[in-house]
Write a protein that binds this DNA or RNA. Structure first.
Lengths: 142, 142
DNA sequence: TAATTAAGTTAGCCATGCCTAACTTGAACT
DNA sequence: AGTTCAAGTTAGGCATGGCTAACTTAATTA
C-alpha cells in the first residue's frame, strides 16, 4: 500500500541484495547479514518487510527475487553510489574515506544534485591540470 | 564521560543553538523547537542530554550556554554546512534542493572530503566558463 | 533413513529520537 | 499578593532498526 519513501536502511538492503544477485546469482539471508555487518535475525525481519512492500518476493526458508519495482529502485541506488564514488575518487581521496562518506551521503542526494555532480565529474575528467592543482593545494594527502 | 561521536541529531541541535545565539544572543527551548520543526518536549530532552555530555551548560527554566567544547563543535558543524552549501550553489542548484541535501549529507562528510570539496570550490570559482558549460550540459535547470 | 549442522525464524529486548497530554515554573500585569 | 499565560518539564508512548537466545527447517552425510 505504501510506496512512499524508502528509508536509508531499505536502500542499503536493496543495494546489497542486488549486488549479491549480480555476483553470486542469489541473495541469502546469511550473506546479506555478513555483507552489511548485522545479524541474520535483523535481515530476516527486513526481508519480510521488503516483501510486504513488494520490493521483492520472498519465500520463507527458500529465497528471494527482486520485483520489477525493487530492481529498478536498487539499480538507481547502485548508480547513485557509483557516481558519488567516481566523483570522490577524482578528488584523490582515500578509498576507505570514500566508502565511508558515500555510504553516509548517498541516501540524501536529490536527483538534480546527482545530475549536477555527474556533469561536474565528466568535466573534471577532461581537466587533469585542474585536478592536479587541487591535490597540490590541499597537501596531496587524502 | 563519553566524548565519542555525535549523532546527526546532536549536530543538528548544536548547529541551531549556535545560530540562535549568534542572531538573538540566546537560545530558548521554544525557539530551538520551532527552528527544527519539533516539539518543545523533544528539545528539553536533548538539551538535558547535551548538558550531560558537557556540550552546553543548562539551568532548568533558565537558559543555556555552549561550553568551549560545544562551541568548537558547533562552529565546525556550521562551517561544514556552509562549505557544502557554497559548493552546491556553485553548481547552480535550486535553494530548496541545496538545503535539503546539505541537511542530509552534512553529518556524513569526513574532514578530508570536506577539504577536497573546499579546494574544488575555490578552483571552480575561478572557472566560470566551466561552470557555464556544466549548466548547459545538464539542461540549465536545477 | 537417521543424525548433524548450517541457515533461517521467532520472541522479546534495547537505544534513539520523536510525539502528546498533563503538570510546573516564572514573568508580567492588576 | 494574586492571577494569568507563555515557556518549560515530565511521564508515558511509538516507530525504526538494531540485538541475543532459543527454536525450526532443510540439506548433507554417514
Amino acid at each position: 500500500m505504501n510506496a512512499s519513501r524508502s528509508s536509508a536502511a531499505v536502500e542499503d538492503y536493496l543495494e546489497r541484495i542486488l549486488e549479491l544477485i549480480n555476483t553470486k546469482g542469489y541473495a541469502r539471508v546469511v550473506d546479506i547479514a555478513t555483507s552489511l555487518g548485522i545479524s541474520q535475525a535483523s535481515v530476516t525481519n527486513m526481508v519480510q518487510r521488503l516483501d510486504a512492500e513488494a520490493l521483492l518476493k520472498y519465500e520463507k526458508y527458500r529465497g528471494m527475487v527482486l520485483t520489477t519495482a525493487g530492481e529498478t529502485l536498487a539499480r538507481n541506488i547502485a548508480r547513485r553510489h557509483q557516481l558519488l564514488t567516481d566523483f570522490l575518487k577524482l578528488l584523490g581521496l582515500d578509498e576507505r574515506v570514500i566508502e565511508h562518506d558515500v555510504e553516509g551521503m548517498e541516501h540524501h542526494i536529490s536527483p538534480s544534485t546527482l545530475r549536477a555532480i555527474e556533469a561536474l565529474t565528466a568535466q573534471l575528467k577532461r581537466r587533469p591540470a585542474l585536478l592536479a592543482r587541487l591535490s597540490k593545494q590541499r597537501g596531496a594527502v587524502s
